[in-house]
Amino acid sequence: MSTTPQLTEPRPPIAKKRGTSLDRKHARFGWVFLAPFAIIFLVFLVLPLAYAFWMSLHTNTLAGGEQFSGLANYVRAFNDERFLSGMVRVAGFAIIFVPIQIGLALIFALILDDVRTRFSRFTRLLIFVPYAIPGVIGALMWGFLCSPSFGPLVTLFELINAQAPDLLSRDSIFWSLTNIVTWQWTGYYMIIIYASLQSIDPSIYEAARIDGATKLQTALHIKVPIVASSLVLTIVFSLIGTLQFFTEPQVLSPLAGNAIDAAYTPNLYAYNLAFSYQQFNYASAISFALGLLVFLTSIVFLIATRKKSGLR
């Protein structure tokens, strides 16, 4: 089992073939096959990013139209308390979400890899099903379930004649959102980790068993290190998703009253600035700053884990 980290250049499988006449003659066809994707890539990724950067360096004034304003929008953003508190909030979400999601995904994957019954196969499907449900509907369902007026908790607390806690209040909304996202994404990450556990050669376990390793030891010292590259992949996905958190708070905001404001997450703030207040230049600056932050965080994480886990 090779442990090359994912998201790196796969090596050409047959190095000796490099530079043969057959190769050179056909190489230009590479560009022909790549061209359609390359065009979409330039038009819908490179161009919007460049345009967002350009917009972020300008300010739209009623009198003078678009005017170059240098880094003014960024200076404004980093002095904007609403933006900064949104940033701190998603950072907090990332610290909570990522370990919970990946931790649960890993635990379930290890159990499902170990227990092979009809029930465990059924559970595997159930854990994955939320991935097939749109985030909007996931948020709506949990919004109802957490609702102080018609959630099941109300019924439960009525039985003991107590006031049910308001799960959509300012104090508890953070945990309600954590719950929704955990429900939505754990299954997806679990399947990725589970699939790589499945590809481990079982003779390794036999060797460990003969050496007297317990199941827990086998899991911690053999399975987890082997699937480290899937763990890194799922952590990066989870991190990228969390930092651009948008759908769930946006959907829950009318249900949750004043617990979720227009700047709850940076992405929500950028959306509201752009579409409610027509401040496209400032919204672009926020969007671009957030994008850059997500990008750099992922790259730094990938480089850091590459060294730590001894991967090449």
Partner: peptide, 30 residues
Amino acid sequence: YRFRGRTVTFMILLASVMVPMTALVIPTYV
């Protein structure tokens, strides 16, 4: 295909996986 620029373009592709798609929505809208 081992075409000219393959390594560089693939590195750019890998980096772009890390670009959050929501960052593209507002400029694309404009």
